[in-house]
């Protein structure tokens, strides 16, 4: 086993056992590699986590239990980015500028209700790591459509007969348009994808200013797949180019993970109950949008891989 993997296995884990995440929670795997990866990259830095309302307000623990090995400020739905800015400002004044302030926000708080705050913190180039934990709907309340819900996906507020109008908000590209130092997309579906993931977390630890990590993580009850499939679903999302892994580092775009043999998006969609109602025509339309977006990214990256 390669040394870098041995090191990861031996890391102290900052999401503690006994947390109340669902069995097979995709974001639980992701947050582990974000927090532990930031510590691995900058062992001397402490982390403060800022969590707007989400499943993670609950997973953090029922009072007086704390499921994290870091300090966590829970916030209202819309103000996490501003509050991370406030904590960072205070710590800077108190001589604790070495602390990494990390927002862990869902797609509802990031793409919808808190979007103006995220955009403003990016525009101010606040020195924080903003992580979008994207599971493509309001999952804490039981799977309602958000601005990051993809076309065709069943949610309780976009039932099969009444699909969402429009497309999933392209948050990573919107954030990159703010001209911030670092934007990346991440997913955990295989060991090579983990290497890509950890490299991006390390890069985020090194850069100063507003860093935006967009992670796609599956939700077994919301996406309707067995608890054992969270990594598989993530792998298929990337290998089908449904969720391309790329970064925009100092304005330079790069596709960081090229599927050798891109799979049809159908391979991703058919693993999940939320897409089970789709017709062939609807899947073709999704495929066309996936191809369109890949070509657009490839153009931005101009062949940089």
């Amino acid at each position: 086993m390669p040394a870098w993997l041995e090191e990861i296995v031996a890391e102290e884990k900052l999401l503690l056992p006994g947390n109340s995440a669902c069995a097979g929670c995709g974001p639980a795997i992701s947050i582990r590699h974000v927090l532990d990866g930031l510590v691995a990259a900058k062992p001397e830095s402490k982390i403060v986590l800022v969590i707007p309302s989400s499943c993670w307000t609950i997973i953090a623990g029922v009072f007086p239990v704390n499921a994290f090995g870091v300090s966590v400020q829970l916030t209202p739905f819309a103000s996490a980015a501003a509050e991370a800015s406030g904590i960072k400002a205070a710590l800077r004044l108190l001589g604790r500028d070495d602390t990494t302030v990390v927002v862990w926000g869902g797609d509802g708080s990031t793409a919808d209700i808190g979007f103006s705050g995220v955009s403003a913190a990016a525009e101010r180039n606040e020195d924080i790591v903003y992580v979008l934990n994207d599971n493509e709907a309001y999952m804490n309340t039981g799977n309602q459509k958000s601005g990051a819900t993809p076309e065709g996906a069943w949610t309780t507020t976009t039932p099969a007969g009444a699909p969402r109008a429009g497309q999933k908000k392209d948050i990573a590209r919107i954030m990159a348009a703010h001209g911030i130092p670092y934007v990346a997309t991440l997913a955990l579906g295989s060991v090579p994808m983990l290497r890509d993931f950890r490299a991006k977390v390390t890069r985020a630890a090194e850069v100063r200013g507003f860093r935006f990590l967009h992670i796609l993580s599956g939700c077994p009850p919301g996406w309707r797949y067995p608890t054992s499939q969270s990594t598989e679903v993530a792998r298929l999302a990337v290998e089908s180019r449904y969720f391309p892994l790329f970064e925009c580092d100092g304005g330079e775009w790069r596709i960081t993970f090229q599927p050798k043999q891109p799979l049809p998006v159908r391979a991703f969609l058919e693993t999940q109950g939320r897409f089970s109602h789709l017709s062939s025509d609807e899947i073709d339309s999704i495929q066309a949008h996936v191809d369109e977006r890949w070509n657009l990214l490839a153009g931005l990256a101009r062949g940089r891989v």
């Binding site: 993997l5 999401l15 056992p17 795997i29 582990r32 608890t227 054992s228 969270s230």
Partner: peptide, 28 residues
Amino acid sequence: ALFCPEGVISKNDGSMVVDYLYCKGCGI
């Protein structure tokens, strides 16, 4: 151990160990 959501699989003396006190049985 890399992908366990609970972080409860560890390597001990060259072999893998699952902490069943916390394992939620997801099967990943």
